[in-house]
Simulated scan of single mutants.
Amino acid sequence: MTTEILFEDERWKVLALDDLARTASRQTLAHLGLDPEAYEFSLLACNDARIAELNRQFRGKPAPTNVLSWPAEDLAAEQPGGTPDLPEPDFPDEPIFLGDIAIAWETCSAEAETGGKPLEAHLTHLIVHGILHLLGYDHVREADAVLMERLEVEILVELGLPDPY
């Protein structure tokens, strides 16, 4: 799994974010029966001001959020609760680019503190969540939310982390 991380906020550098992202993404892909070495994504480690601007620009919501995802392609299942399509390679022998994820320092750290969770555990959950979005999973429709949350819990348990819900 190739992960490119852009640190826009230096506070992220106190964590081993590259290791967290690698572990979370590898486990997510492996859990879904996908070879982690065949995929890549990018991660923007930013602050609330930056993610609020991105949220406004792409979702029409001018407020900070914990994580945003931009899938490289729409893989969502047509039927509620269905399994998304698998990504197809653009070039033989090259990793498949899944898309981009952004996370915001202030929101993520505040959520972890409020929830009484270690920041690393909360970030692992958010990265798993973001990777699932890149793979076409969503939580807008009830049946899709049930599927996505079940997968998140299963993946986090495999990583030795508790149910975040």
Rank of each mutant, 00 (worst) to 15 (best):
L29G: 06
W12C: 05
E113D: 08
L86A: 12
S109F: 11
I155Y: 07
E10F: 12
A72S: 09
Q27V: 02
C108S: 10
L44W: 13
E78S: 10
T2S: 13
Y165K: 14
T124K: 07
E152N: 08
L126A: 09
E4Q: 12
G130V: 07
D100I: 07
H122Y: 14
P92R: 08
D85H: 13
Q79A: 14
P80C: 02
H129W: 04
N66G: 14
L75H: 06
R150P: 01
D163I: 05
W12L: 02
M1A: 09
F97W: 03
H129G: 00
K13F: 11
R26L: 14
P92S: 02
E78L: 09
T107Q: 09
M1W: 02
E113H: 10
I51Q: 01
V14S: 15
A30P: 00
T107K: 13
Y39W: 00
W12D: 03
A52G: 03
F41P: 04
V14Y: 15
W12N: 01
P62D: 08
T83A: 12
K61F: 03
V140K: 15
P87E: 06
T28S: 10
P84K: 03
M148H: 09
S42M: 09
D100N: 12
G116H: 04
R22A: 14
L6E: 15
P162E: 03
L68P: 06
I96W: 04
L161R: 01
T23M: 09
P89W: 12
G99P: 07
P71I: 09
S69V: 03
Q27R: 12
V128C: 07
E158R: 15
R26N: 12
A45C: 05
E154R: 09
A121D: 11
W12E: 01
W105E: 04
E152D: 08
P92L: 11
W105N: 07
G160T: 00
I5E: 06
L68K: 03
G60W: 00
E88P: 02
Y165C: 13
L156D: 00
A16S: 12
L15N: 08
F97E: 03
L123H: 02
E8Y: 12
R150F: 01
C46I: 08
R22P: 07
A24V: 01
W70I: 02
D100F: 04
K61V: 14
G116M: 05
P84I: 07
F41M: 08
G33S: 01
V67L: 11
L44Y: 12
D9M: 08
D18R: 15
P80E: 00
M1S: 02
L43W: 05
L156E: 00
L32I: 06
D138K: 11
N47G: 13
E113R: 15
V128H: 05
R26W: 14
L20A: 05
L68D: 01
D74A: 00
N55G: 06
E120W: 00
G160P: 02
D93K: 10
D85E: 15
H31T: 01
P162W: 11
P89F: 09
E73R: 13
G99F: 05
G116L: 04
L32Q: 05
L156Y: 06
L123P: 05
D163V: 04
N55R: 09
D19F: 13
T28A: 10
A45K: 07
